[in-house]
Simulated assay, not measured.
Amino acid sequence: MTAALAAFEQAREERPVRLLQRHDNDPVFQTWMEIYGPDLPDAADAERRIAAALGAFAQGPRHREAFAAVAGPGAVH
């Protein structure tokens, strides 16, 4: 996990990208999710770099999900 976190930090290059881990108690299979800041001008490039950096650590296929706020700050009505 330490090597994967270091790879993420290097690929992130100080961009506003957060890394979350699913909160369950599976000691073998971890699920990670990146959150790309809304003001990130090069999100597609950042995603490609991070995907490439973390590919060696993945235990399954990578997939992309996109969300929009429906309530709270930033919600679109």
Rank of each mutant, 00 (worst) to 15 (best):
V76T: 14
D45L: 13
F8K: 02
L40K: 05
D26N: 15
E14R: 06
H23P: 10
Q21G: 00
V17Y: 00
M33K: 08
F57N: 06
A46C: 07
L20M: 14
A69N: 10
V76F: 11
A53K: 05
A4Y: 06
P16D: 13
E9G: 08
R64L: 04
P41R: 02
D26V: 09
A6P: 05
L20E: 01
P73V: 08
A6I: 02
A43N: 04
T31P: 04
I50T: 01
A51I: 12
E47S: 01
E65R: 07
R15I: 06
A11V: 08
T2R: 13
H63T: 00
E9S: 05
R12Q: 04
A66M: 13
N25M: 02
L54Q: 01
A75N: 07
A75H: 11
D42Q: 03
T2A: 15
F57H: 06
M1Y: 00
L54V: 05
D42W: 04
A4M: 10
D26T: 11
D45E: 15
D39P: 13
N25H: 10
E14W: 09
I50F: 02
F57A: 00
V17Q: 00
V28G: 00
V70H: 07
A3H: 00
R62G: 14
A7G: 08
I35H: 14
D26H: 04
R49C: 07
E14H: 11
M33G: 07
H77E: 15
V17K: 04
R22Y: 00
P73M: 00
R64D: 12
V28R: 09
M33I: 04
F67H: 05
